[in-house]
């Protein structure tokens, strides 16, 4: 019987510091076969779907789920974005290129890629929420003709907390980037305030599909705002974060009131699925 908790080795092949608290790790499985493959109909994506997560472990420090933050092409390696918060992530920060860690997964359902084709997109990210959106952004950047108009609304606390800054130039070619900072510094010439405030200044495209990733506190305000701007509820998708232990729908840590498991049925949900589930957002 296959052991669903068995982990497989990964080699750290690159570490890139985003800021004092966030680093991007590039990880390569020792054996490619150990990544379970998920393929969408259009074959744009192999190996994993943007929005899926992976369970990473360091022996002695336990396991934790991380969103995969790199596009699945190529799929012999992937990246995760780690924010220093607890024991496992602190240990992560002390590791170097060449060190070995473990993984299992990927798990969950990613963004509904087939539903996104030819559509206008509204990507909304708060803080670290930009990480799970990045693989989608990279796919859009390489397959612009497959999508309609794409807008990204991103909010960070301070400029030094902004993620993937050196990629914005490339993204802008195909994506309208609207960024805001809670606490701007003197060099900042973008918007200030919360991401919700951006919607009062910048019109959103008609008939778009919205994907929201960010801290739990952000969801209600953003949803209220975009609904006011004409966004249909059925076109809103959210990526939820929950405590996870098993990753396969058994341990109960990630369950929502409506009986859905964030690990197995999510982490990406359509807003309609969550409306009957108080506390989900």
């Amino acid at each position: 019987m296959r052991n669903q908790y068995k982990t497989y080795p990964l080699i750290i092949t690159n570490i890139e510091s985003q800021n004092a608290l966030v680093k991007v790790f590039t990880l390569m499985p020792e054996d490619r076969k150990n990544i379970k493959c998920a393929t969408d109909e259009k074959k744009i994506i192999k190996c994993w779907v943007p929005g899926q997560f992976i369970s990473i472990s360091i022996p002695g420090f336990g396991e934790a789920p991380f969103a995969i933050c790199s596009s699945p092409n190529p799929c012999n390696e992937f990246q995760i974005c780690v924010q220093k918060k607890g024991g496992l992530t602190s240990k992560f920060f002390s590791m170097s290129v060449g060190d070995e860690i473990d993984f299992r997964g990927p798990y969950g359902n990613g963004f509904p890629i087939s539903k996104l084709s030819k559509r206008n997109l509204l990507l909304i990210a708060g803080g670290l929420g930009l990480a799970p959106l990045r693989p989608l952004i990279q796919i859009i950047a390489n397959h612009a003709a497959e999508f309609g108009k794409v807008q990204l609304f991103g909010g960070s606390r301070e400029e030094k907390m902004m993620l993937f800054k050196n990629e914005y130039g490339a993204w802008r070619k195909n994506i309208e980037l609207n960024l805001t900072l809670d606490i701007p510094n003197e060099n900042w010439n973008g918007s200030t305030g919360l991401v919700t405030a951006l919607f009062d200044k910048i019109p959103i495209s008609k008939n778009a599909i919205a994907i929201i990733c960010g801290p739990p506190v952000m969801f209600p305000a953003v949803i209220k705002k975009i609904k006011k701007k004409g966004m249909a509820e059925k076109n809103i998708y959210l990526l939820l974060e929950r405590r996870m232990h098993c990753g396969v729908g058994i341990c109960q840590h990630c369950v929502l009131v409506n009986g859905k498991y964030v690990c197995k049925d999510g982490p990406v949900f359509n807003y309609a699925e969550l409306k009957d589930s108080p506390g989900a957002i």
Binding site: P59, F61, G62, E63, I250, C251, H253
Partner: peptide, 17 residues
């Protein structure tokens, strides 16, 4: 319901999940 975590045993220098 269960949790999964790592346990360090300093006496025999072992780690268990």
């Amino acid at each position: 319901c269960f949790k999964i975590y790592d346990e360090n045993n300093i006496f025999n220098d072992s780690i268990a999940r």
